[in-house]
Nucleic acid binder design. Structure first.
Lengths: 227, 227, 227, 227
DNA sequence: GATGAATGAGAATTCATTCAT
DNA sequence: CATGAATGAATTCTCATTCAT
């Protein structure tokens, strides 16, 4: 088995003149990262296929090719795995939203606003399981452990992902307070629309979610102060 | 063992002229219904107090004053209990929306629209656990084994609860197709707003949900064709 | 398998005119008692043969002919089993001390004092494992759970077993305070002597424990005020 | 794998004129000893702070700054560590008792007797964990796998610590046989009193242990033949 | 109908020990 | 000598479900 493809090499590698010990430590550290990733991949696949209840430590270990006990070399407990999973997910979300740009090179603020919101929306539309992940693990719905610190950190990550939307709204002339309210509303709408999309089977729930989202953004933009 | 006698006889009988056997069957049937209700009450209280994980069959049985085995005389398994619970919940929702009226005796169609939508919104705002129940059991989120038939039935019940909103929109001049779209949007918004309300802890998530809902309804009404 | 020999019938049995339900409840209750006893016997034998660490729930279940899960119908958890075990042991100790009498029919207070102390001593000399049991479970040595209430109850039982000694000392003219001190000293000595007996292998530890105990009681009696 | 080099070379070497190989072996041996000590210190601190159950090999390794596997270069297994720990403890006890002197420079034999016994008593009173250690490891109580040889060695060490008491008793005119008996009794009493002290919570067990000990020594001295 | 004892599978977690590196 | 990943067996406990009574 080769870990080559897996390790993203998140650390500095053997810089020139590193001692043997350093080199070895670095190599082992990246190996460790790779194996953590391996486990997280297993956890994600288990979660996506079997749901939270199915993503037991045993199942994760099995999919990762480990014995249950081995997992504890990499994570302190199940909750930490769940937390890391959600953390990764939110990080990806952040990057996507951050990178979102309007269609033209010199996008107007309005264009940027729509682009940011749409990136958020599309991320979860394309990865519905990530939305589930958030629901399952964010407190409120089901009190899955998550230490307060971890929970807070994840909350912050989510907020960070919404930050660009809020900033564009402020750039468009809204007060911070107003921008926060509108951002909340956008978030709520996105969530609601996607739940509709993911949950439903019947006629009603089959409404084109993109259309619903676009309509909402249209009406939001129309509400904004003219520039 | 056949559960045939137990299930699916919700209609009251005891019509005049029934034979002795029929009378007895009817009495037994209503007795059955009563005991099913007893169990469902226990299940609901367990679910509301302890969450889904705490609402184990043993706990439900205990609260109903039964032993675990006895439950199986009335329900085929745990999932069926959950399903029945959600069914009841949706029925109550239906009644609430049905009964909703505008403030004046002769309410305008707009007033009625708002009243219906608000009834829906308030029902779940005031009973967040009912919302949880729906999330847990509606497929897509978690593969809880509701049978397809039961699932379909529950879907229909939810649609029925939204029907009044759609009808008012049609009364206000929208085509059926348009009315369906707007109803979907209203539903999505309500769900999103309430999830925000129930899930969050941080600044963003603390936005006044009523305010968000009202804003949405305002903009919807403004969009409607003038009468 | 017959439980006939096992159940000590600690409850009232089917008094005349009892209803069928009552009779059945009584029979089941004694059956329950019998099975609790069965489990406790298994636990005791496991503890005696394998020590506390060996007396795992699995081992106990195996010896009782049960699956691990079945144990939980009779005891809430392992600690409760340990507690019950120690409780039984102390109860037997109490009975033995209570029943102890001097050699003659009309024993003097001194004779009774010696008889009571000796009964205590002999109980643990003859059942060294019961002494172990006490050590393992009484807090201080190893913090084995035992809820505070249970712990307190067991403490009281032990005190009760020492009560007769204290009473005789008072009957012999000691103040309550003095009697308490001497009782403590007797208890300490007994424990020390028996640990010597049970622990040792070498010359020193092979000292006749009975002789040590007798010597101590002699010197105690000599110290008492003349009657 | 051979542990031969590691074990059992406690004597210092490095005598003059050693060959280079010998010097190297000696240096390695003392290095070994130092690292064994390091591990034992870690084990002791773990045991004292966390109890026997908390003193896992992993915990010990962590405190010693080693990885679990490394421990096995110095000890064959966990039990050997425990055994060495108890050995050290008894060695300290020996030194303390050996060093004990009466209050005046030219102490009488009686004073010395009391001093020796008190040193023994105080050692364990002040270090209750050392007493625990002994209980856990001396066989009889719990079948911890100390090898017979190790067990015998530890027994001898304990006997050695009691030797001074016995010698003083002989100096005071007791026959060897009598001295052995009284030494046993003193030991038993000390152990009993300290167990009372360490174990109990309730009124009875709260008796001042020093007082009990003093009373016993008083009565012992009184029993001795007049000089 | 109802009981409730029992099963059997599964949950998370811990740990001494081994062994390739 | 030291690492530390991995094992494998152990731990307690929970639960839906079954079934003889």
């Amino acid at each position: 088995m080769s870990y080559g493809k897996v390790n993203g090499n998140p650390e500095k590698r053997c810089r020139k003149g590193a001692t043997a010990a350093e080199t070895r430590a670095a190599r082992e550290s990246t190996l460790n990262q790779a194996r953590r990733s391996l486990i997280l991949d297993a956890a994600r696949s288990a979660f996506f296929e079997l749901g939270l209840d199915g993503a037991s430590l045993r199942e994760i270990a099995k999919r990762a090719g480990y014995t249950p006990g081995a997992i504890y070399s990499y994570f302190a407990n199940l909750e930490e795995i769940y937390g890391a999973l959600l953390g990764e997910s939110l990080e990806r979300l952040n990057q996507v939203v951050e990178a979102a740009k309007g269609w033209s090179d010199s996008s107007s603020a309005t264009e940027l606003l729509r682009a940011k919101a749409e990136a958020f929306y599309v991320f979860y539309r394309e990865n519905p399981k990530e939305l589930d992940l958030g629901f399952y693990l964010f407190d409120g719905m089901k009190p899955r452990g998550l230490t307060p610190e971890l929970n807070h950190e994840l909350n912050e990550q989510l907020l960070a992902a919404l930050q660009p939307v809020q900033l564009q709204l402020e750039a468009l002339g809204l007060s911070t307070e107003q921008a926060v309210i509108e951002t909340s509303a956008v978030f709520a709408h996105i969530v609601g629309v996607l739940i509709l999309k993911n949950t439903g089977r019947s006629r009603l729930f089959k409404q084109n979610p993109d259309q619903l989202f676009e309509r909402y953004m249209d009406s939001l933009v129309r509400r904004l102060p003219a520039t």
